[in-house]
Nucleic acid binder design. Structure first.
Lengths: 138, 138
DNA sequence: ATCCTAACTTGGACTTTGTCTAAGTCAATA
DNA sequence: TATTGACTTAGACAAAGTCCAAGTTAGGAT
């Protein structure tokens, strides 16, 4: 993730303390925070950071392809820094826990051309639903 | 869709004009309206119908399994009356148009047990992304 | 080292989407 | 046709996100 700040500077980003903090907060595996959660954790390190800046920075990271936006429930979007490894999501219907998973094969290939209605298909997002071990036993 | 009203009455629903209008608005194929769109069309037929009733009725139809809730963008949920035919969604990144599609095979089967992390997997939702014919040529 | 300036950040108002509640209305049964 | 609990209503409220004018600052220019 420290490469990230370098990559961004190479793209002409101004490297502000706010952006650095947002990038730090998003570091790690299986991280799927909402914008508000990102803001809360950013505030812990940089108390004056505003919600608007968190939204702006997240939006920029998404446009640059460094972070994925995930909408697993109808509520707040979540931000997934694992953008450089193709993956899908497995969501617990009980507690909302999210895991990154990798299905076999190319999901797009499963859509026959007769089901494409003239669209140029570029990708597919899959949300697997189920119960996590804790919720299965509860 | 007229069966729907019968089915619902069989389940103890009070058959009000408001519920009838919401059910009528949701009739058809490839219908993916937001709650506000449903409300707007319902108002055209029954001017006094309130937003709260539209939300209540949509929520009830979803609980009863008669309508699916779809979140293809991070914005408003959409309501899909095509709940009795398993299908997935193909969304145009240009204009937001949505088509119901049926991929080949069982999407859940593509997730190996080593990628299930102890979850009991019950289903999968797929959103295919692409450009519709109009947006491809624009 | 310091200055300049466009880029960035801020706080707050505003919008969109959805939920909740108290009071009024009505469908279905008797 | 009377009754009653389920349904509906308007509007307040809440959550998530956007927008803007004014203030601040990173980083190149001097």
């Amino acid at each position: 993730m420290s490469d990230l700040l370098e990559r961004l500077r190479g793209r002409g980003w101004r490297l502000t303390s706010q952006r650095r903090v947002v990038a730090e907060v998003l570091d790690g595996d299986h991280v799927h925070l909402t914008a508000d959660e990102v803001h809360a954790r950013a505030v812990a390190r940089l108390p004056e950071i505003s919600r608007a800046t968190v939204y702006n920075t997240l939006g920029e990271l998404v446009s640059l392809g460094e972070v994925l936006e995930v909408a697993t429930d109808g509520r707040a979007k979540r931000y997934d820094p694992n953008a450089h490894h193709a993956h899908q999501h497995l969501v617990c219907s009980g507690c909302g826990a999210i895991r990154d998973v990798r299905p076999e094969g190319d999901p797009v290939a499963a859509l026959p051309s007769t089901e494409r209605f003239g669209f140029t298909v570029t990708g597919a997002e899959i949300t697997y639903r189920g119960l996590c071990p804790d919720c299965t036993n509860a």
